[in-house]
């Protein structure tokens, strides 16, 4: 699959300090790519350079082959940007805001009206579109903020922490909408310091800290990097015979199996794959299960493993 964006050695220096330090990555067409990192990691600066808001100190990035340095207007025609802040006119209605931004993206006439109706439907705010933005809840404002980014029918949608300050229900709505758009073929570059959001939405992830990408790959690849195994803890109603240890080891493809009366603890690299087989094995041996607990290493533990600090530090 072809790359829609190629970032090479992108660097931004502010007053002698490298806010972004030689960042490189590619995003394939139709992919959802996450930039994960704590506040101050350099995510927004990276996004700002890719959106042609600020020029890089060195390096370059190409979006559909167009350079952010040499052809910023061509780049801007191909992207939709959803900034971290709610960049809308509070005294205008959602519809008036969308019409204005649509015109700034070069839309007009019937095409503009159709597009405004379409994005309102995508973010589920058609009914409230005539209300002023300052009458909206935080979550609704965020949804219109995203709708503006969708107006130009972008090849790449860049979102910079689009769920900051919204309630859990609105966050779920936003993430579901974005996943739906991604499944529909929209390429997404998503930054966040919320590990769960990136895990939910993104196929591949780059982890940033202090201006640098410290790891990137698919979620599974990154988990393996953390050097931790999945932990399966199964409590049973019936006693588990010691004779089953060897069978479980074989099924789990691991030697790390402990049995104590009515409990089994397994450490494996493929917890999700192994679990159904273990449940089946116990059933065949007439051992009833009381509870199952699965603990997987996540991006949080990866970040901890790589930097020695937590994502929200």
């Amino acid at each position: 699959m072809m790359n829609i964006i190629e970032v090479k050695e992108l660097t931004k220096v502010y007053e002698g300090r490298k806010a972004v330090d030689s960042v490189s990555f590619e995003i394939k067409k139709g992919e959802a790519f996450g930039l994960l990192g704590p506040n101050g990691a350099g995510k927004t600066t990276t996004i700002s350079m890719l959106s042609c808001l600020i020029p890089p100190t060195s390096g370059d990035a190409h979006i559909e082959g167009k350079s952010i340095i040499k052809e910023p207007i061509e780049v801007k025609k191909r992207i939709g940007v959803v900034p971290q802040d709610i960049a809308l006119y509070p005294t205008l209605s959602a519809r008036e805001n969308l019409f204005f931004w649509g015109e700034m993206y070069g839309l007009s006439g019937r095409r503009l009206k159709e597009k405004v109706d379409e994005v309102l439907q995508v973010v589920g705010l058609t009914e409230r579109s005539k209300d002023r933005i300052n009458k909206y809840s935080g979550g609704m404002k965020r949804r219109i903020n995203i709708a503006v980014g969708l107006l130009p029918s972008p090849k790449l949608l860049i979102l910079d922490e689009p769920t900051v300050g919204v309630d859990p229900q609105s966050r779920t709505n936003i993430l579901e909408s974005l996943r739906k758009l991604n499944k529909g073929g929209l390429t997404i570059l998503y930054t966040s310091h919320y590990m769960e959001e990136v895990e939910f939405l993104c196929d591949r992830v780059a982890v940033m800290d202090l201006g640098k990408i410290i790891a990137q790959g698919t979620q599974n690849e990154l988990r393996l990097l953390a050097g931790k195994m999945d932990s399966l803890k199964i409590s049973t109603i019936d006693e588990v015979q010691m004779r089953l240890v060897e069978v479980i080891k074989k099924v789990s493809e691991t030697d790390e199996v402990k049995i104590a009366d009515k409990a089994i603890e397994i450490l494996t690299l493929q917890g999700r794959k192994v679990l159904p087989k273990i449940i089946e094995l116990l059933g065949n041996n007439s051992i009833r299960i009381k509870s199952v607990e699965v603990e997987e290493p996540n991006l949080e533990s990866l970040f901890l493993h790589l930097t020695g600090k937590e994502l929200r530090d």
Binding site: I73, E74, K76, V81, P83, I86, A87, V148, P152
Partner: peptide, 14 residues
């Protein structure tokens, strides 16, 4: 402050 001015720069406008 609302960043609408900066957002204008993300649109294909000189």
């Amino acid at each position: 402050h609302h960043k609408t001015l900066a957002r204008l720069l993300t649109t294909p406008t000189e």
